[in-house]
C-alpha cells in the first residue's frame, strides 16, 4: 500500500512516516502542500493522510485537487482543531477526520494496517 502523508510540522510527518512504514506499506512524507501536489501529479497512492491546517493550501483544498487525478484514493484528514475541517458533503468523502495527538491504534485501523 502507498500512503501519501502531508503535514507542515516536519517532525510529526517524519515520525508518522517512520511509524507507518512497513514491508507492506510505503510512506511518502511531504512537509508542504504544494510539493505534495506536484508529487501527486506523477505518482500513485492508495491513501492520503493530510493535515488540515497548512500554509498555502489547506488539507481540504489539497484533497480536492489530488482527488481529480486519483479518484479511487482514500483520504484521511488530521487536525489539532476539533471541528476544524469544513467539509462540503457533496464532494468531500473522507475515510476519517482524526484529532491530534493521534491515537495510533485508531490511525492504523483507519489506514487498514494491523500495527
Amino acid at each position: 500500500m502507498k500512503v501519501l502523508l502531508v503535514d507542515d510540522n516536519a517532525e510529526l510527518a517524519d515520525n508518522l512516516a517512520e511509524l507507518l512504514a512497513s514491508e507492506r506499506t510505503e510512506v511518502f512524507a511531504h512537509h508542504d502542500a504544494t510539493a505534495a501536489l506536484a508529487w501527486g501529479r506523477t505518482h500513485d497512492f492508495d491513501t492520503a493522510l493530510l493535515d488540515v491546517r497548512m500554509p498555502e493550501l489547506s488539507g481540504v483544498e489539497l484533497m480536492r485537487l489530488l482527488r481529480v487525478g486519483h479518484p479511487a484514493a482514500r483520504f484521511v484528514l488530521m487536525s489539532a482543531y476539533t471541528q476544524d475541517a469544513e467539509l462540503d458533503p457533496t464532494q468531500d468523502t473522507v475515510a476519517a477526520v482524526l484529532t491530534k495527538p493521534l491515537d495510533l491504534p485508531s490511525l492504523a485501523k483507519v489506514l487498514g494496517l494491523d500495527a
Binding site: 510529526l12 489539532a80 493521534l102
Partner: peptide, 17 residues
C-alpha cells in the same frame, strides 16, 4: 490547547518510536 496538540503529537509519536 490546540497549539499544544501538535507538539504533543510529535512527543507521543517520538516516544512510540
Amino acid at each position: 490547547a490546540h497549539e499544544m496538540r501538535n507538539p504533543l503529537a510529535v512527543l507521543s509519536t517520538s516516544s512510540h518510536l
